[in-house]
Design a protein around this nucleic acid. Structure first.
Lengths: 344, 344
DNA sequence: ATAAAGCACTTAAACGTTTCAGTAAATGCA
DNA sequence: TGCATTTACTGAAACGTTTAAGTGCTTTAT
């Protein structure tokens, strides 16, 4: 049951442990003869040797590990996989990392301990932080000495690399689309509008589009809560309570939209005939909705790929040049929007 | 930028490194005076010391790391987060592991390399494997010397711990419910029926219920494909192609059901009036569907919690007693089933 | 009074790698 | 031919911990 170590391989191949190491890592500065290389490789496969990555990390101070911090529903609670967006993103991150020979350490964002224990302790080579992150902790992260990529965050700090989308423009696009369909009174429904978060930008885009069309932004048309199905239901109730004033809504997340639609339908409000909706994200859910969601499409897979790429590039080149990556958006038309009818 | 190590703490507190280690790990066999303990703790917080977990793992041969293997859509492809079930399960596993001070190493199931690189290399303390796993590789896993928990797998091997649900009984319950509602011709729609997988059991449960009611199991009523939305749509097409023979269906996964419903509705088949459906899993999606799904509810959170508990318990006690945990199911009635009408 | 036991530590080896510095032999160049 | 360089390795320190085995000192038991 004893683990086979590099020394066992060395003995088997009749060379020193360092030679084995050089062969396995194909260190460019070191020259090894083809025959030795072959003997070592044979010994490796004969003994079924697999290097101990902990020892490697300890010695070489790189771990081939990327820390991924995912938002939680609440501090100390579960990860936010109730929003499929995060699952899809993680899937892409994992896939890309795996292709580069990296493993993923996954944890929640919202705990003081976590960034500490995950990044500092394990010696990750880089960190990908999804969504907003408590401000004070961000500064602590700087001392880690590893590259950090912020996904969907508007923190202005050249220390971090960022990857995001054109949130403001996307929201503007969505709202303008509704306006073009003849809607004049348009609700804005979003998750919590927090500092450096995407929803501020999306709200700005919404306001811009309204203003450009000469329409007033009514405070009563703005709904904000948590990013989940339940809040969508709540928003529907609130919509009723506030007197059902709008004929359309721009919602900043597909999950919320799902709840909103359900809540409205339960009250015999038809989508899109009575209320048209443009959503945001285009998670795979969007297609399943009834009606299927007209929504701002973002390439979640690409986001994950770029995030990994950014973190790995930064880990390689040790000079610190801040990079910023913004992915484009598009509107996909499905079934949740129709022309405003004159009698509404 | 130099990392502060245990030696720095030792120097600061005026003790040896081992004393610091004993204090930090509060090793039960070792006695440390309260004053020393205090001095050490002060030095730790003064210097901001955080132990290097790689070094710890190397020395103590435990890593506080759990490997989690999630199915992929295809070998070499992304993780199966298109089925929200896995996201919800991972969320629960991560949360529980975190509470126990463990981190998660997440990777895909379907690659030869992966179990190797993830488990063997990093020295994880245990592995949680979700879903079925290629048989040959399972045997390789045994040599790792760490506990392995199989989630939702019917591999008969006392080496592994298992956690699952009453798949057969759940399927029987679902089918019987449809029979009680007056349906005589009931389709069975599932993901791929593979060896040791859950779908075999669910198929058996379906057959049992039919037989008990004196109904024949018609081969033409059985649909099997992949576990995703797209297959649901395909199944709807196939249902039409086969002549629309059944008035009800038992579907073994909510995601498939979502696609099936969509596909049927596109062909103006009403749910539940024309076709009643009982689904399986009760992911949060189920509530969002239109109509909301009547489905076999399983406690995904509990499944994750138990999986972690099992793996940690096994890691602690080194005697190897195989444990098996089966969680109960229940049927939750929502909107996708109605009494069979006489004219159908 | 003396051996045994307990207390509060310290020493040093070990975990499995990487990598710098070194070495002996082979080759290149004048 | 002689010296410098290259080639192909090896030795040993280092990475930061844990932990078995020891070391004095103090207390308890006989």
């Amino acid at each position: 049951m004893k683990r086979v170590s590099i020394k066992d391989v060395a003995k088997e191949a009749g060379v020193s442990a360092s030679t084995v190491s050089y062969v396995l890592n194909s260190t460019p500065t070191e020259t090894i003869s083809p025959e030795t290389k072959k003997r070592v490789m044979e010994a490796v496969s004969k003994l079924g040797y697999v290097p101990n990555l902990n020892a490697r990390s300890l010695s070489s101070r790189r771990s081939n590990l990327i820390g991924v911090l995912i938002p939680q529903t609440e501090p100390g609670k579960e990860l936010m996989f109730s929003n499929p967006f995060y699952g899809e993103l993680l899937s892409s991150i994992e896939y890309t990392a795996r292709q580069h020979g990296y493993h993923l350490l996954v944890s929640g964002t919202k705990e003081d301990q976590d960034y500490l224990s995950i990044a500092q302790n394990r010696g990750v080579d880089g960190v990908i932080i999804v969504g907003t992150y408590p401000g004070e902790n961000l500064n602590a992260l700087k001392t880690l000495g590893v590259p950090i990529v912020l996904v969907d965050s508007y923190v202005k700090d050249d220390f971090f690399h960022t990857i995001g989308i054109e949130d403001k423009e996307g929201a503007r696009m969505a709202t303008r689309y509704l306006i073009e369909k003849g809607h004049r009174s348009i609700a804005f429904v979003s998750g919590s509008i927090r500092e450096n978060g995407v929803n501020i930008k999306r709200y700005q885009g919404y306001c811009d589009a309204m203003r450009e069309a000469g329409l007033a932004v009514n405070e009563q048309a703005v709904y904000s809560g948590t990013v989940d199905y339940e809040y969508g239901m709540d928003a529907a109730r609130e919509f009723l309570a506030r007197g059902r004033k709008q004929t359309a809504a721009f919602v900043t997340a597909d999950v919320i939209t799902m709840g909103l639609i359900k809540g409205l339908q339960q009250n015999h409000i038809r989508i899109p005939e009575d209320v048209s909706i443009v959503s945001f994200d285009d998670v795979y859910l969007a297609r399943m909705a009834h009606p299927a969601l007209t929504t701002i499409h973002q390439d979640i897979g690409e986001k994950g790929r770029q995030a990994v790429q950014l973190v790995l590039d930064a880990a390689k080149s040790n000079e610190h040049h801040h990079t910023e990556c913004i992915l484009p958006l598009s509107l996909v038309e499905r079934e949740s929007v129709c022309e405003r009818r004159d009698d509404s």
